[in-house]
Write a protein that binds this DNA or RNA. Structure first.
Lengths: 150, 150
DNA sequence: CGCGAAAGTTTATATAGTCAAGCGTTTCAT
DNA sequence: ATGAAACGCTTGACTATATAAACTTTCGCG
């Protein structure tokens, strides 16, 4: 079974890509457990129950168009998970607040999300720390690129 | 700028989730450079130019429904990147072959994909090798889980 | 006041994902 | 061999998501 093909340094990036791809179905499946689509899950995850944000802020966080957020928010709101609220001082803005129901679901989702697969849990703390460093660097790298020249 | 918040081992898994989100837009953008959607990119990437496979095999690789693959393959075929071929001995099966044009595009896509972000390229080779080992274990773990009890 | 920009929504079009039904083939038990 | 069941792929209906354009309401500012 385990063909002992040696692992080289150049395997790293391809494996990151492979890993990222396997992420997709994992997240979709996780969200499905709560009757959420992947984007709805991301949205609920992004929202801070203690600090409502404008829709445009959520759009930025999800890296998607504002018009798109309308539909996603519609769905979450129709399920009573979040609420559109007016913003003081600017009637154009709609602040997104997480309801109690939403807060609870969000916690459950978070709990499930944080259950690492066996292979991850088995990693030595030091390795996890190293990987965390790399991932953070990549995430920040990408964020800088996509926010780009301000 | 760089706030020196220390990275802990427990940051790893949360960062994977974060990474998943940033990965989405990265891949979508990459594929868009070649006028491919994310799934079309995945499909083209999955197909082996030297070894045609049945549509159902591609469906498994993409972890999506067979009916879905029909449309994706339609698009790729209409652009002349792949071809449906009959299978010897079973006329139900359609084998997917990558055309010369598809082979070339696939190579370009692969080349772009394999350009590691600066954060990765900067890692010492030994670190990359170590981390590659870890990731391979995780990826294989996931694959085992989703293919499940055969 | 009046102009332009911003925040959200709406509409149209295209891609996906799911599920059910359909069609031609193949397998297999009898 | 033959008929029922299983298989491989396609279709159709429905929903979700992405993108782009037009539109509404509101704000900021000269």
């Amino acid at each position: 079974m385990d063909r002992e093909k040696p692992v080289t340094a150049d395997d790293f990036w391809p494996l990151v890509v492979e890993f990222a791809l396997s992420q997709r179905t994992w997240w979709v499946g996780l969200c499905a457990e709560f009757d959420l689509t992947a984007m709805q899950g991301h949205a609920l995850r992004s929202l801070d129950p203690d600090r409502p944000v404008a829709m445009s802020v959520l759009a930025d966080a999800l890296v998607c168009d504002a018009s798109n957020v309308t539909g996603i928010v519609d769905k979450l709101e129709s399920r009573g998970l979040i609420e559109r609220q007016g913003a003081p001082g600017d009637r154009r803005i709609k602040m997104l607040a997480v309801t109690d129901k939403g807060r609870e679901l969000r916690t459950q989702l978070w709990t499930r999300t944080m259950e690492p697969p066996a292979a991850v849990a088995a990693l030595p703390a030091d390795t996890r720390r190293q990987l965390a460093k790399v991932l953070r660097a990549i995430v920040m790298d990408r964020a800088r690129e996509s926010n780009g020249p301000r």
